[in-house]
Design a protein around this nucleic acid. Structure first.
Lengths: 220, 220, 220, 220
DNA sequence: GATGAATGAGTATTCATTCAT
DNA sequence: GATGAATGAATACTCATTCAT
């Protein structure tokens, strides 16, 4: 693993554990046993590191939320895929969600990338919902697709912040994020096709069980 | 106006305009034309000032969301009252919403007060929704009252952050917050009694109109 | 009791309890329930207060160490008088002994007064020792009177500091100061007339007993 | 000379010249022509610098007062060694002696180290005195060894403070410290073996001469 | 690729003292 | 006599970033 990648990985880890504001570039360097100068050889900036992390984040979003089309999209496996992806992104980049505005407003270039990714994501989500409508899994009135997409994005975007504000401990657990996944499912519940009720119940059960797990297992 | 109050007012204004993290105690003092020492004569801390602002915030919440009981709660005036209160609190303390976690996790004492206020608010909101159920204005199934309360709180709590993240300009307009009020109404829409449809439409119209207003008028 | 005197008394108490450097003029005023302005109405300075305390200190020294002359000086009561006076002055003005150099070098005027008092004290002590020589209580060779005086003064002057440095707790107990009194007696021991041995033993016993007392009684 | 060492040396010099309390970290940095940030790159704290100085102090004490055993301890050279060491430590770390209690009570960790060093020193001094007894240089009754050790330590510890209080100028001269060395010798005088009188006189003469020297030579 | 010493602007806070009322 | 609001200079410490080697 190259130094450049090790820096990104260490920064991500420390940001997630301690909050981006509390992690200095010197901390990252010390954590890796390299010199601060070396860190600045690979990255022009602290923000530059965050850009690289954001890139990973964006790639995950793109890969994970490319709409599956055709009958395959009706299978339960697809639901697990999307919901696990939501969890993964919330957990892996929780520092980003926890400090979204600080990070974005400090760096307009990153902010623009973020907005582009969000737009793209919205398009994908809408396509996805329409596909699920077509596959008779969901039944969302057309004019509600847009606001629902927005609500979903908003809940996912601020679930980490919301939960962090609920506890004196700034760190969040995986359990709390699975709760967020279950909440997303709840938002979709009114639109599930009647005969998909059992399927929904099973999914819901699955994530609620994970939300009850005290340890931090990762769904595979 | 006493110096102590002028400090609180100036701090609130500057925090809202520039973000709490970017406003130093010296900035506040300079903005008022007083010495830093004088500021520290009236407040022990920067946090002490924030505590005072939070107190104002909490008082507004308490006063504004004390549930109205009896037939009066069915009048449209009550809706205007509550929705305007939501707007007021989001606008007047937007710096707080925009930096919620930073502020809370830096000051555990404040965090405890915040959690207490939130609990109290949840109780009041639930009582309010039940009363509106009783008055046949809403028809929320009992087991949905709690999750709905949570969702409402979450949307209000992070609307400012959410909207801030959507724009390159960190400052948010009143219009955007009226949009948030309209969104709250939207969350309640499914539960409105059928014959209250017209009333709802009127309310919705009102706030959507405000959300379209480019200048910053304030509903009275 | 006049405000002026109350200020001096409060300052002395707080200085002794918490150390002069840790007691601000505002502390003193708050402790008395008066305004800082009022304190400065009565005293030009924090140093001015210390001057007043020093004056009390100097008066005690003068009164207590005026040499008793004639056969009376041979009585044990005289010894108790002098040794109790040493204890009193160490206890009552322990903040002064604990911060001697800080206080003196910050205020040359006070320093001059201090040096004058010390010179006067040295003269008195020497006269006293000579009288005790004359009364056949002590037998100090003439050329040793001066160095002995100096040693006595030095031990008394820095006993408080010395003991404070021996303990992690900056506060000193009365017991520890009685130990200092016993130490003074020890310095004189070699010069006691052989037949005064019993008397010396009794004195020594007395102060060593007090040094063992855990509570803080005051000898009268 | 490395920057780290230069900082320690400059701090020691400025502390000795102006008193520890009057020397800020910025003063030290400015005096060396380096940035305050650089100083904090090498030391976490002002206290951290003092810890480093204390370490040097402790090392000197340990090295210099390791008891010499055997007949060698009877030679005059040994006396010069010990008395010069006393002088050196009083001179080189005079700021420490001048502000002992301020420095110790502000930093409990340092205070503990200090007490440990003092205990070790007491043990060494007692061993040394016993060896000199064995070598027939001194004749100290066994039960007087402990109090004598204490007195020696106390005189050395507070000689700097004592002398500083005697003069309006807070700075102390080397001459005055040589006087302190002579005083130490005086305390031992009663216990010198009769036939060592000439030797003692020579030693005493030596340090008294240095105490009379206005310039600041250093015995080698 | 990597080191690590160096920069310097920035920030919250303290406290003896003043003065209009 | 007394109030209490106001002053302002001073201080320890941080951290993203640079650059000679």
């Amino acid at each position: 693993m190259k130094t450049k990648d090790r820096i990104v990985a260490a920064a991500l880890q420390l940001f997630n554990e301690q909050g981006e504001a509390n992690v200095t570039t010197n901390h990252i360097a010390a954590h890796l046993g390299i010199s601060p100068g070396n860190l600045y050889y690979h990255f022009r900036n602290k923000n530059d590191i965050i850009h690289r992390i954001f890139q990973q984040y964006a790639e995950h979003l793109r890969k994970s939320f490319t709409p599956v089309t055709g009958p395959a999209s009706a299978s339960p496996a697809v639901w697990f895929h999307y919901l696990d992806a939501i969890f993964y992104v919330m957990w892996e980049f929780r520092f980003f969600y926890a400090n979204l505005n600080d990070i974005l407003h400090r760096d307009p270039e990153l902010h623009k990338k973020y907005l582009a990714v969000q737009r793209e994501l919205a398009v994908n989500l809408q396509a996805l919902l329409r596909e699920l409508n077509a596959q008779q899994v969901l039944a969302i009135p057309d004019q509600e697709i847009d606001p629902l997409t927005q609500t979903l994005k908003m809940v996912v975007s601020f679930w980490v912040s919301y939960q962090s504000a609920q506890s004196l401990d700034p760190r969040i657990s995986q359990a709390v994020l699975y709760e967020g996944v279950a909440r997303v499912l709840l938002l979709l519940k009114p639109y599930f096709h009647p005969e998909k009720g059992a399927e929904l119940a099973k999914l819901s059960e699955h994530y609620q069980a994970l939300a009850r797990t005290p340890s931090d297992p990762f769904h595979k």
